[in-house]
């Protein structure tokens, strides 16, 4: 009986889900890009897809939008099977692509008008929505500005406003703050939080861990086409990594750390910097206290473990291109 109830509950959650992906596989010319991934995004939550470059994030998003046909697997977006009913599903979806593709020949408001027409929305309805969207994007007064005259942050915000022209339930954001300065990033985050409060579902890819930690209710780490971890940001940190980190760097740091490996649960070296992962950092800090006077070249930072540590532990420190 319990299992039956469980089954009913999970079936219900799947059919209500904003996005449901199961068994997704995709390869190009014999090279596997996605090797069977499953995840569910409940409505009105923010889901983050993290992964190094080339992990398959963008391909996953393209499959979810019906722009790439998977080799295997099932996708339901906004209650519709994709790619079979992708066009209908996309009427309920907004997309902020990784690279701005605003129309350079148009002003801000013309960009919104022309984009709204692609959804089959009447001009009068779009024109009613434009002032509110420009206001939301902090672009009041820029309605008639040409795209070339906007800063990078303004273009990103206009792209976000454009993704809202059809009042979508689900918004895909592919690296929404890449290339922005801190002010612009914080403004985007604040707007995304407002959208979440308003009941929108957000699905974002990023490789900024602070962004994922701040925004996402749940996130999944994708590497080599498989999901290697999934959960709430705090859960992932708690379950995958020791709570404290001591980074030691400067002259002789590597040698110093190598002989004191036992002072932490785990030691990772990256160049000349030693990362000690500890449940209790007190013995290590005591050892360091004697060594890091003004005369010594050794320096250290003691901090709480973050999502970035989890990410590096799971995906390794090697460069990805």
């Amino acid at each position: 009986m319990a299992s039956l109830t469980g089954l009913t509950a999970s079936t219900a959650s799947v059919s209500d889900a904003a996005l449901h992906v199961s068994g997704l596989c995709k390869s190009y010319a014999g090279e596997t890009v996605i090797a069977g991934i499953d995840f569910v995004v409940p409505p009105a939550t923010c889901f983050g897809l993290l992964g190094p470059n080339g992990a398959g994030k963008t391909t996953t998003l393209r499959c979810c939008l019906g722009l790439t046909t998977p080799d295997r697997g099932h996708i339901r977006l906004a209650g519709r099977p994709v790619p079979a009913e992708a066009e209908a599903a996309r009427t309920r979806v907004g997309v902020v692509p990784q690279f701005d593709n605003l129309d350079p020949d148009f002003t801000s408001s013309e960009n919104l008008l022309v984009y709204g027409r692609y959804f089959g929305i009447k001009d009068a309805v779009i024109r009613d929505r434009i002032p509110g969207l420009l206001d939301f994007a902090g672009l009041t007064g820029k309605a008639n500005a040409r795209i070339q005259s906007l800063s990078g942050g303004m273009k990103r915000r206009l792209t976000l406003a454009r993704a809202l022209i059809n009042d979508p339930d689900i918004i895909f954001l592919d690296e929404p703050t890449t290339g922005l300065d801190p002010q612009a990033r914080h403004l985007i985050w604040e707007r995304l939080k407002r959208l979440m409060v308003g009941g929108k579902t957000l699905i974002l890819t990023t490789h900024f861990m602070d962004e994922a930690e701040r925004l996402c209710d749940r996130l999944a780490i994708l590497d080599h086409g498989v999901l290697i971890a999934e959960g709430a940001p705090r859960e992932l940190i708690a379950s995958h990594i020791e709570p404290q980190v001591v980074e030691i760097f400067g002259e002789g740091a590597a040698a110093w750390a190598a002989i004191r490996q036992g002072l932490g649960e785990r030691l990772e070296m990256a160049g000349d910097t030693a990362f000690f992962y500890c449940r209790d950092a007190a013995p290590l800090l005591a050892a360091l206290a004697g060594e890091t006077g003004p005369a010594s070249g050794l320096r250290y930072v003691h901090r709480a473990a973050s999502l970035e540590d989890v990410f590096l532990k799971l995906t390794g420190r090697d460069l990805r291109d």
């Binding site: 066009e87 996309r90 009427t91 979806v93 692509p97 593709n101 605003l102 984009y115 959804f119 059809n166």
Partner: peptide
């Protein structure tokens, strides 16, 4: 170059 088609493909148009 402008990726205008990519932008359109994210809407219900094919």
């Amino acid at each position: 170059v402008q990726k205008t088609w990519d932008a359109i493909l994210n809407t219900p148009l094919s």
